[in-house]
Amino acid sequence: MPARLILFLALVLLPQLRAQPQTSAAKPADSNHLIGSNSCRKCHPDIWSTFYRNPHYKNLANAPDARPGEPSKAAGCETCHGPGGAHVAAGGGKATIIAFSQLAPKQSLNACLVCHENTLSRANIRRSQHTLTDVVCSSCHSIHKSPVAKNLLARKQTDLCYSCHSNVRAQFSMPFKHRVNEGFMNCTDCHNPHGSFAPTWRTASRPRMVQQALANEQPCLKCHSDKRGPFVFEHAAVRVDGCESCHFPHGSPNPRLMRRPVVFTMCLECHNGRGNFGRTADGVTPQSPSHNMADPRYRNCTTCHVRIHGSNADARFLR
């Protein structure tokens, strides 16, 4: 059975592994030649008239052969769209030039990475979840018609993210939430849509698109710096499994973005004596016999264990 499987895979996959010819859009004809951006502006005045506001304009304005009032011939439109000679000769058309609307997602990604490679924020773009699912540069960025002041986004950032992640929109619409819909925060305060390094606060590679902050820590601690420590007595769950052990990061029906409507059920789900880790090998310590859950005063754990994220004075987080 394994031999048949290997043979089958070989027959199916090996022909695919041959180098594939480039599409005409990605590689215009050899006879093509550069014509300079001045030629482009004649037929595309709507793009040209406001292109000086585009961050890509600096490529044109600062090219070695650029002169005031006279665009470069070595840089500009053809840097991304390829030589335009054939395009002009044919009187336009998407087949004679690199038109991003016609490119396959991977081709589009490669075209942008020609210049936007080698940056720290995009170091993991090849393995990012977005790339794996065909969400590439042009899915979120509008190079010529961006309505947003920065980063050439095709829409306002939250709307852009919600258009695919509408379940996240639901989370940010909860009574308790981080203030994203209010414009106070952005998704990119915590996430890197271009892909991130493996999270240091979890065992698995998930969450996949969460950006490390403060060099190598959870992004939550960038703002919630009082929870960062170091503390002599750390609540180990914060370091071992991360803030998500107890909190929903986007939004929650519960105060302080808690995972449960009351604290004691959340605490007891871990503190049940299971395992053999920690002091005197008694696992995650169960509550003390002095606690009586039949008495309401013992149901608000954090009334006494106030320093639940970590303490310098008390191993039980009492002060």
Partner: peptide, 28 residues
């Protein structure tokens, strides 16, 4: 006093044997 040194290392290698295939390995 309390101290916490944190060190991380990451190495990502991506290979493109053909235009259709991307292999990546990430070690942390």
């Amino acid at each position: 006093d309390a101290s916490r040194p944190v060190a991380t290392g990451n190495l990502t290698v991506s290979l493109f044997p053909t235009s259709r295939l991307t292999l990546t390995n990430h070690t942390s």
